[in-house]
């Protein structure tokens, strides 16, 4: 297939340009062209949430976005969650709460949680479970993930006040 396209966008605050084929997904380009392999591939059909990124403020599964669709967008990936060399509240809460076992779903959960707390800084347990229902985890049974999200929301509220 010929006819590569140039796509220009912002990734984690940096202006980025890449060449891609029309059939390439955003997930493939993030991982293969931009070496941002923190975004994981679990199913490639939008069912597992491991590849979640925030695109123009909205969480999307990057396996269902074509790379060319990202033209002009502002993207935040797991690599853009930490603040410099400091983990943010969500990452710290996952670590301290042992909310990960194998860790493959963790980037997707953390990014989805960032989107949740942006929309709803004080979510109930039901809010959390509903918002994260598109992210699959097979190791934890979700208990410690939900508690970590609660802890992160609380930490962020404390920090804000």
């Amino acid at each position: 297939m010929s006819g590569k396209r140039v796509v220009t966008l912002t990734v984690n605050g940096d202006r980025v340009e890449f060449l891609c084929e029309a059939r390439q997904t955003l997930l493939e380009v993030l991982r293969n062209n931009l070496d941002l392999t923190g975004t994981k591939e679990g199913c490639s059909n939008g069912n597992c949430g491991a590849c979640t990124v925030i695109m123009d403020g909205r969480p999307v599964v990057s396996c269902l976005v074509l790379a060319v669709e990202a033209e002009g967008s502002e993207l935040r990936t797991i690599e853009g969650v930490a603040r410099g060399s400091h983990l943010d509240e969500v990452q710290s809460a996952f670590l301290e709460g042992a909310a990960l076992q194998c860790g493959i779903c963790t980037p997707g959960f953390i990014v989805q949680t960032e989107a949740l707390l942006e929309e709803n800084p004080n979510p109930t347990e039901d809010d959390i479970r509903f918002y994260l229902a598109g992210n699959l985890c097979r190791c934890t049974g979700y208990d410690k993930i939900v508690r970590a999200v609660q802890a992160a929301a609380e930490a962020r509220q404390v920090a804000a006040n």
Binding site: R31, N32, T37, G38, T39, A82, L87, L95, A98, T106
Partner: peptide
């Protein structure tokens, strides 16, 4: 006790290398 796991920082920042990340 409940110390933070040693591989934790890599796994919450996306730095941990899984099989598909090999290039």
């Amino acid at each position: 006790t409940r110390p933070v796991r040693h591989d934790g920082a890599d796994k919450v920042t996306g730095r941990a290398k899984y099989g598909a990340d090999i290039k």
